[in-house]
């Protein structure tokens, strides 16, 4: 098991390296003189030169990249220059993390709770009107990105009917109900797309699994339909569904950007937008690194769960 993890992590190293390169090169994209941009419009020529030296911009590209890489490896991810000057970029990210983490988790939980019964029902009643309605629903859901569902949900449920608070966030420490009341609408807004993708995948793989010989055996054993589907079929249908679930993380991170702004939640997405507007490049760079590593980490975890679902995939 440890060997498996080590092997996978090793495989990710080139990618991680490239990610640092991408994040580094962002700064190269800045048109004009980055030192001037960072120092601000009111900076004097001396201040600009100071900034240049401070950011190491007076050295050539390779040296700068290696310095950057060295910094990362030693755990230093740069300092915020405009949002909260002086504080470490990673600190800001970690401050914002609980919000986004809550949002992501609740969103995925909602997605799974809705999508699994939906997919199972559609698969078991394949071809009937139930299947067609559910499949139609997923098709429409696919087309509802968070930035459409967000405003619509806010308009209907928060502004018109005041069922939920429209903005803000309260941490879990304030109590579960309070925490959930602020999270529910934004998480729901993000989950539509995930419901669609997960639901479809479950339907597809369950249909395939139900045709397998071992399902016939399970029926021949006289097991109830619930048991046949719930125990025998689903475990085998799970793998592609888990893969899709893993892919949702990337999507949800993108979704949080819009949703956190709409619902005024101080999460990582909002941090991303704010730091872009404030020209706080170190924070932007740190965010790129962070989100990429989050995705890579999630993929690793998904790969590890495969071994649980399909014993054939376990090493040795």
């Amino acid at each position: 098991m440890i060997r498996f993890i080590a092997w996978r992590v090793g495989g990710m190293l080139p990618i991680a390296l490239l990610v640092t390169l991408v994040s580094f090169l962002l700064l190269e994209l800045v048109p004009g003189d980055p030192a001037r941009v960072v120092a601000g419009d009111l900076a004097t020529p001396e201040q600009i030169e100071e900034t240049r030296a401070k950011l190491g911009l007076d050295q050539n590209v390779v040296v700068r990249y290696l310095t950057y890489l060295g910094d990362i490896l030693s755990g230093s991810f740069g300092e915020s220059i405009s949002l909260q000057p002086g504080r470490g970029a990673m600190e800001l990210i970690l401050d914002a993390l609980p919000v986004t983490l809550s949002l992501t988790v609740v969103s995925l939980v909602i997605a799974v709770i809705v999508a699994v019964p939906l997919g199972v029902a559609a698969a078991l009643r394949r071809g009937t009107w139930v299947d067609q309605v559910l499949t139609g629903f997923t098709s429409v859901s696919m087309a509802l990105p968070p930035f459409v569902t967000g405003p619509l949900l806010v308009t209907v449920l928060a502004v018109a009917y005041s069922l939920f608070p429209a903005v803000g966030y309260q941490p879990l420490s304030e109590g579960f109900a309070v925490w959930m009341s602020y999270l529910f609408l934004p998480a729901l807004a993000i989950s539509f797309n995930s419901i669609a993708e997960i639901g479809r995948q479950i339907r597809g793989s369950l249909i395939d699994v139900m045709d397998q010989s071992y399902i016939r055996t399970a029926n021949a054993k006289g097991l109830s339909a619930t048991r046949v589907v719930g125990k025998h079929a689903l475990k085998n249908a799970a793998i592609p569904a888990v893969t899709v679930l893993g892919l949702q993380v990337t999507r949800v991170i993108g979704g949080t950007v819009v949703v956190e702004i709409i619902f005024a939640m101080p999460g990582i997405g909002a941090l991303a937008v704010n730091s872009v507007f404030a020209g706080d490049f170190p924070v932007v760079q740190a965010l790129v690194l962070f989100s990429a590593f989050a995705v890579l980490g999630t993929n690793l975890i998904v790969d590890l769960t495969y071994g649980y679902f399909d014993p054939r995939l376990r090493k040795g």
């Binding site: 010989s213 071992y214 021949a220 054993k221």
Partner: peptide, 19 residues
């Protein structure tokens, strides 16, 4: 089924749940 009448099939490997 499974109690009074049981059935076995061809290609037993595929008839067993891999999980």
């Amino acid at each position: 089924r499974g109690v009074e009448v049981s059935m076995i099939f061809q290609d037993a490997l595929r008839c067993l749940n891999p999980a």
